[in-house]
Amino acid sequence: MTTLGTAIAIITVGIGALGLILKKNLIMKLLSLSIINTSTILFFVMVVYTPGDRAPIGELGVTQMADPLPQALVLTAVVINFGVLALSLLFTMVLVKRYHTLDIQKIEVSVKREFDEEKL
């Protein structure tokens, strides 16, 4: 069953994927990746949501409650996203230090040239 929440989460994943593939700036790619991460979490939260749910805290099983399992699954993912982001920003820093540009196409050209020179 599709609700507005899940539909928007899926569309946002699509937008993030477009940004991730089509943007040429490395930082913009990372930002798009962040959008995909957040939207995935949103999907997990929304897919079990029915209007009128309250937080699964307090007296359990008495009133209508949100499902705790997907929330517990994605709670760890939020922190993982942060770790991944920090590490990839660091690698971006290393790349920028070496090639002095954030443009992925220019970096690819430089890497290819270096590789060819090494082979000769």
Partner: peptide
């Protein structure tokens, strides 16, 4: 997703709540 489960929302965590 719209076609998959027409009747109500999945509640996978009910067992855990119990």
């Amino acid at each position: 997703l719209a076609l998959s489960s027409g009747g109500g929302t999945l509640r996978v965590g009910t067992k855990h709540i119990e």
